[in-house]
Design a protein around this nucleic acid. Sequence first.
DNA 1: ATGGTGGTCCTACCA
Length: 276
Amino acid sequence: MMKIATWNVNSLRVRLPQVLDWLGQERPDVLALQETKVSDADFPEKSLQAAGYHVLYSGQPAYNGVALLSLVPPTEVQIGLPGLDDPQRRFLAASYAAPDLPGGAIRVVNLYVPNGQEVGGEKYVYKLHWLSLLTDWLREELSPRACPGTPSLVMLGDYNIAPEDRDVHDPVAWRGSVAVSEPERAAFQGLLGLGLADAFRLFEQEPRSFSWWDYRSVAFRRNLGLRIDHILVSRPLVDCCVACRIDKGPRALPRPSDHAPVVTELSRNRDSATAD
DNA sequence: ATGGTGGTCCTACCA
């Protein structure tokens, strides 16, 4: 069984004790972090390595930043969306040995999709452009080249898109807003159209399941949130996906991130997952 | 009620 998770931590330095606690409790094989908000020189490499994890990171001061933590060493590291010369650190991909999964390896793509700020604004245009380049890149990545068959790929992170109205606490109030607008949702559907599945929706879930709650207006206590953090899996992994859940625990801690971790479990044979 | 909170870095900007 392989456990893979994503968590927008909104500053890794502030959240490091929570991340270390959570790694100890959950022991994910791979954890993708977003909004690390730390330059590479200041990345807290040693304490994460002491917890047993290999680390990859692409950061910058104050904004953005992505990292991958893993129990086994990474290979084929890709920093930044290929073809986009961008100072904003939002994309990090690596491959990991996964003897239990089709192909014997898994490609993990960690995304911090631009927020977009306001529909129609400059940052919104950048968001849609970024998603368009991501889609072009993914199309190539999923097409079988030298290796036969579709690769085992997980693309996860903070997409800053709530794909459907059921992913929004108040769809009427949010209609047309950033994270919910039709062009953003169309871009998300475009990614699914290339052969990915939203792991969370492979399973029955509680209504009003969200992964982000605004810090303001005691939104978490009132469960006024959005589901914008996603784990998408390629076709060969759909049959391996045995669970996907949002862990609201860390969001309830003092001084939390505004996002909760999302976790999936993958196993070659669904039926053997519980016996594993 | 057109606000509110939080992180970064120290003044606004971003989410």
